[in-house]
Design a protein around this nucleic acid. Structure first.
Lengths: 339, 339
DNA sequence: CTGAAAGCGCTAACAT
DNA sequence: ATGTTAGCGCTTTCAG
C-alpha cells in the first residue's frame, strides 16, 4: 500500500463524484440506495479508511470529548472513566484522556493541548493544588462546554457533578460518636480542594452538634500515600485518639495494618473510618466502614450533561450543580459489638 | 470570539506571509529571531491556538499513539498507562486510549477507529477472547508500528513486551511445594490467553519436577471476579486442597477472606498465593505472597520501543520479544513459620 | 438524486 | 530570510 485510498479513488472507479461518495459513506438518505450500496462495496474492496482528521477539520468538530483527570491511578478514576466511556461510546464520541498527576502546571498544559486538538467538550477533575481556573477561559470564550466533577471550584459558571461531601463527613463522624468514640482524629488532604474541605466542615459540625470539643491538633493534612499516612498516624497516636476518620480507603487500610502491627485492636481500642468504598475496603481485616462514592455514576452523569450541552443549540452556560447520592457503609472497623 | 484566529490573521496584522508565521510559531531556526519574537507576541495578543487537526492532516502524522487495553479498571492497567504516558509525554506524543472490556468485537471496532484517527503507532494488550489478530492487518499494511504487551499472540511479526509467565507459575508452585504443600489448587482465567496458559504450564512443570502428581480436577478456570471466585473456591474446597495458586491478587484476597469466614487458617491449613503485587496484597491479613508484575516498567518499555520504531526510517517490522523481570514476593500467606 | 467548486488551517516545495 | 503556490481529504454550499 503506497498511498491511502481516498474518496476520489472510489469516485473515479465508480465514475461518480467525490461528493456522492462522501454522502454515500455517511449514509445520507438523499443518495440512491443502490449507489450507496456500490460505494460501500467499493470502499471495502479498495481498503478505504475514513480520514477523521480531514473530516473534523472541515466540519470544525471532532466528535471527541476531552477528559482531564487529577490522576488516573485509582479505582475511583477508572470507575469514572468507565462511566464516561459508556455514555460517550453510545453517543459516538471518542475520548481524549489527559491527567495532571495532581499538578497545576501540568493541568494547564493539558488544557491547552486539548484545546488545540479541537475537542468538542471537556470533563475535568481539578488537581490538588489548582486554585484558579483561568486556564479554562479559552474554552468558555469559544463556548466549548466544560463539566467539572468531584474536584470542583465554586466561582465558575458551568455544570458540576459532585457528592455531598459535607454530609458524608458529618455522617461518618456522627456514626463514630454514636459508637462511643470521642477523640476522633481526622486525616485528610489539601483543604483548598472542596472535597476535603467539605468533609472537614462536616466533621466539625458533627462534633459541635454532639457537644464534643473540636481539637485542632487531631486534624492532620497529608498526601495519603503509604509513607505519609504511616508517619501521620504515628504522630496522632501520641495524642491518644480513639478513632481515625481518614478520607481515603487506601490510607485507612494502611492505618488498620499499622495498628495491627502495634497490637492495637480495631475497633475495640481504636476505630477506623475510610472513604470511597474501594474494593480493598471489604478485603482488609477488620472490614472497613466507609462512604460509597459512586464513580461510575458520576462519570455517566458528567458525560450525559456534557453531551446534552453539545447537542443543545443554546450555548449559554449557566451554573448547575448535580449531587450524586452517596452512602454510609458500616462494617467491622467502627462497631465494637460486631467484632 | 466569533471565529478562530488563524496564522493568516497574524500574517495580515504583521504584513508578512502565513508561511513565515507558521515557521515562526514552530521555532524554525531559519526565521529571523526578531520576526519570530513578533509572531509569538502577536499570536498571544490575538489569542491564537494551533490547530493540530490541520497540521496533522497536512503532515500526515498526528503525533498521537493509540493505546488499546483489554480493560482499564485495575491497578495493573493504570500502572502501564502511567508508564506509557511518562515516555510519550517526554517525546511530545499524545495518547488516544481505548479499551475493549475483554471483548473481541469491541477490540476490532476500537482498532478501526484508532486507524481512522491516524494514530502514528499502537500499543495493545489483547482481550480475553481474541484469537486472531487480522484486525491489526491494516496497521501492518500501512507500516504503522504496533507493540503488544502482556497479552500477546505468537504468530505475529512485531515487538512484544512480556514477563516470563511460565517461570512465574513455576516459581510460585515450587515455593508452595517447598513449604510442604502438596495438593495445590490452581484458579486462573481463559487459557487461550498466553499469560494464563504459560503460568499453568509452569505450575504443571513444577509439580512434575517435584514428583507431585498433576490433578486436573484441582485446576479451575473462572472470570476471577468476586462472585465467580467464591463459587470456584467453594467447589475446590470439597477436594481438600492445602494451597491455592490464584493468578490475580484480588481473587486471592477474596479467597483469603472466604477461608477466614470458614475458620480455615491461612497459611496453617491452606496457603494462598496471588499474582500481580497489587496494593491490596500487603494490606490483607495475612499478607499475600505474590508475583511482582511491573506494569509501569512494561508501559515504559512498550512506549520506548514504539517511539524507537517511529523515529527509525527502517520500516521493516520484525519479531522481537522483550521480557521484563518479575519477582517472587513471599509474605505471610504461604509460610507457616512466619505466622 | 447528483455534481462542481470552494475552503477548513496548515506546511512543504520551490522560488527569490 | 521570506514569499508564492499548491494541496492534505473531506464536506458543504449552490446549482442543476
Amino acid at each position: 500500500m503506497d498511498r491511502e485510498v481516498t474518496i476520489y479513488d472510489i469516485a473515479k472507479k465508480l465514475k461518480i463524484s467525490a461528493t456522492t461518495v462522501s454522502r454515500g459513506l455517511n449514509n445520507n438518505s438523499v443518495i440512491n440506495s443502490k449507489t450507496r450500496e456500490k460505494i460501500h462495496q467499493t470502499a471495502k474492496e479498495l481498503g478505504y479508511r475514513h480520514n477523521t482528521l480531514a473530516s473534523s477539520l472541515r466540519k470544525n468538530q471532532s466528535k471527541t470529548i476531552g477528559v482531564l483527570l487529577h490522576e488516573v491511578n485509582s479505582n475511583f478514576s477508572t470507575s469514572v472513566l468507565a462511566g464516561i466511556e459508556k455514555i460517550a461510546t453510545a453517543e459516538q464520541y471518542d475520548l481524549l484522556i489527559a491527567h495532571s498527576a495532581e499538578d497545576y502546571t501540568k493541568e494547564k498544559a493539558n488544557a491547552k493541548n486539548l484545546l488545540s486538538k479541537r475537542i468538542d467538550g471537556l470533563i475535568v477533575s481539578l488537581a490538588l493544588n489548582t486554585e484558579d481556573v483561568h486556564h479554562f477561559d479559552p474554552f468558555f470564550e469559544r463556548k466549548i462546554p466544560v463539566v467539572f466533577f468531584d474536584r470542583v471550584i465554586n466561582n465558575v459558571k458551568c455544570t458540576k457533578v459532585v457528592i455531598d461531601n459535607f454530609k458524608c463527613g458529618y455522617d461518618a463522624t456522627k456514626h463514630l460518636v454514636s459508637q462511643g468514640y470521642k477523640r476522633i482524629a481526622h486525616i485528610t488532604a489539601n483543604l483548598t480542594r472542596n472535597v476535603y474541605n467539605d468533609r472537614f466542615e462536616g466533621y466539625k459540625k458533627a462534633l459541635q452538634d454532639k457537644k464534643i470539643p473540636f481539637r485542632d491538633e487531631l486534624v492532620k493534612i497529608c498526601s495519603l500515600d503509604k509513607e505519609a499516612t504511616i508517619i501521620t498516624v504515628e504522630q496522632l497516636l501520641k495524642l491518644k485518639p480513639d478513632a481515625f476518620f481518614i478520607t481515603n480507603d487506601f490510607a485507612a487500610a494502611v492505618c488498620i495494618n499499622l495498628l495491627h502491627t502495634k497490637k492495637i485492636k480495631t475497633p475495640k481500642d481504636i476505630a477506623v473510618f475510610g472513604f470511597n468504598n474501594d474494593v480493598l475496603s471489604d478485603l482488609v481485616t477488620p472490614k472497613l466502614s466507609t462512604i460509597d462514592y459512586p464513580g461510575m455514576q458520576m462519570g455517566e452523569v458528567a458525560a450525559k450533561e456534557l453531551i446534552k450541552q453539545l447537542k443543545s443549540s443554546n450555548k449559554k452556560t449557566k451554573s448547575k450543580t448535580i449531587t450524586i447520592p452517596s452512602t454510609l457503609i458500616i462494617r467491622e472497623s467502627t462497631v465494637k459489638t460486631l467484632k
